[in-house]
Design a binder for these strands. Sequence first.
DNA 1: GAAGTGAGCCCCG
DNA 2: CGGGGCTCACTTC
Length: 180
Amino acid sequence: MILCSIEESPFGKMLIASETGKVCYASFMDDRQESLNGLRFYLIHHEWQMVQDNMHSDIVSKLMDRQIGNLETIVNPIGTEFQRSVWRELIKIPFAETRTYLQIAIELGSASSARAVGTAIGANPIAWLIPCHRVIQTSGGMGGYRWGLDRKKDLLKWEKETHPIWKKQFTQTRLFPDKG
DNA sequence: GAAGTGAGCCCCG
DNA sequence: CGGGGCTCACTTC
């Protein structure tokens, strides 16, 4: 049985679902009804139920404290083979770093599939844990983000601020100087 | 099967 | 910067 709960996070309310300890869904919840519809659609062929708020609060706090070691062991997204291979690649991107859609495509062995990679990344069902926010365009642009570009920027900003190596210089340099 | 659609990329002007 | 052509997974006729 998949258990789903509403969580508070510094980046907004979240909807998190898990089964036997593995997260299979996580989204930012800007519109309550819309988010619940999205969850219902995603789990359409599965048994699931809502449980009390904050049941997954440990996951959020671990994300904040960067205490989650091997993401691959606590995440289990539902998707096609291709999608899962793309999402697996995202997990390898280190905290506070970024990659481009093309780099991910090359990593998967097909430089020409950058567009397909973008589409697959856009379908990532597990926000934040599977760090699709760390993927940007080769041109230096931000690309898109299902849960709002501002949130993508916020996540990256927070990661850079939190990361010890960049902590100092961040105060002097803007993350994306040309992107407002 | 044949079109249409993307969170892309590259080239050219 | 801006449009055309290219590509590929996936969806929808």
